[in-house]
């Protein structure tokens, strides 16, 4: 079967270590003032995205998957970014950017 043979336990253990370290960094970063609360949230979401990428690449085997499965896996991501991005853009214009990024 595909992906048979080589064991990836070592890579996965390292991934877990990285995820736990990034969790500590997330909690620490939440208590640091980066200028505005909106910037803090952007930083938290960026760290979360790194963690999610690690989970998808190693725990969910995308690093070793065939191209068709990878294509299906990342199919939704541009649409999610488009949907959330467009609505946030619209909302910030309505509410007033100066209120969101003071």
């Amino acid at each position: 079967m595909a992906g048979n043979g080589k064991s990836h336990v070592k890579e996965m253990a390292l991934t877990l270590a990285a995820l736990l370290i990034l969790t500590v960094i997330t909690v620490w970063a939440a208590h640091v003032n980066f200028g505005s609360l909106a910037i803090n949230i952007v930083i938290a979401v960026l760290i979360a995205t790194i963690k999610v990428s690690l989970v998808m690449l190693f725990f969910m085997h995308l690093r070793w998957e065939n191209k068709l499965v990878v294509a299906f896996a990342i199919l939704a991501i541009p649409f999610i970014i488009l949907a959330i991005g467009a609505i946030i853009w619209d909302t910030t214009i309505r509410v007033g950017v100066e209120k969101v990024f003071p």
Binding site: F72, A73, A76, A83, I84, I87, I88, T91, V95
Partner: peptide, 24 residues
């Protein structure tokens, strides 16, 4: 993975709701 994509879109809607009410 295709099913997981629909799950991601379900949560994307909820996260969008979060973002909109956060800005309010």
């Amino acid at each position: 993975w295709l099913f997981l994509a629909t799950e991601l879109l379900l949560f994307a809607v909820l996260f969008t709701a979060y973002a909109v009410y956060y800005f309010h």
